[in-house]
């Protein structure tokens, strides 16, 4: 996603170009999903919330005053949708996201199946650790990972100085590493390490 192209789409969509509107959404829907995942309570339906944001995005884009603040505006819609979901639903702890592409019980090659299983477990663990972080660290981590936004672009979307985003990403990565690291003594029953933050 290059910025000149992004700006062009925003202006065209504001002028009523339906194709630009669709393209703008396609460019940002994974990004919106990341914002929702960073803010929505466990147990919420991500697809439902995406639908809500999509409808609000279409209805309210013409109210956007400053095209330069498009990402911040879209993020605010997503955060509001996630918070509304939090008010509507009882928070229920559960496994975050199934990873079907890594779980293939019918795989005839045991070694490959084992590799996929451990990969799936590792990725699920990454998501679990990510969701257990404080929102200040969680959201920049989601946004950095989802679409390759630069630190500058993340800073603009979050309304923060770049140096703050830089520090939060570094801390978030440190937290992730510490939580992913194997426990010091691995004798006996494998323990589930709880992130220490």
């Amino acid at each position: 996603m290059t910025d000149p192209q992004h700006g062009k789409h925003v202006h065209a969509a504001l002028a009523g170009d339906a194709e630009a509107l669709s393209m703008l959404w396609r460019d940002h829907r994974r990004w919106v999903a990341a914002v929702l995942l960073a803010h929505m309570p466990n147990g919420s339906d991500l697809e439902d919330l995406l639908q809500d944001v999509a409808v609000t995005f279409c209805r309210n884009l013409r109210k956007l005053r400053d095209p330069g603040s498009f990402r911040a505006w879209l993020r605010a819609i997503a955060v509001n949708a996630a918070r509304s979901a939090g008010r509507r639903r009882a928070v229920q702890q559960r496994v975050l996201v199934p990873l079907p592409e890594f779980v293939d019980a019918a795989d005839p090659a045991p070694a490959r199946a084992e590799h996929q299983r451990t990969t799936a477990e590792r990725l699920e663990r990454v998501l679990a650790i990510l969701s257990s972080m404080q929102p200040d660290y969680r959201e920049p981590m989601w946004l950095r990972a989802v679409q390759g936004l630069t630190q500058q672009q993340i800073a603009e979307a979050l309304g923060l100085p770049v140096t703050t985003v830089e520090t939060r990403l570094a801390r978030g990565r440190r937290m992730l590493r510490q939580a992913m690291a194997p426990p010091p003594q691995s004798v006996g029953t494998p323990c589930r390490q709880k992130p220490g933050y």
Binding site: E19, S22, L37, E47, A54, C58, R122, L123, V126, A145
Partner: peptide, 20 residues
Amino acid sequence: DLRAAVASAVAVADAVAVVP
């Protein structure tokens, strides 16, 4: 790992389109 996990988690977004 983070990118792979996040890509998998947000893939559902590709199914959500807008109707201009």
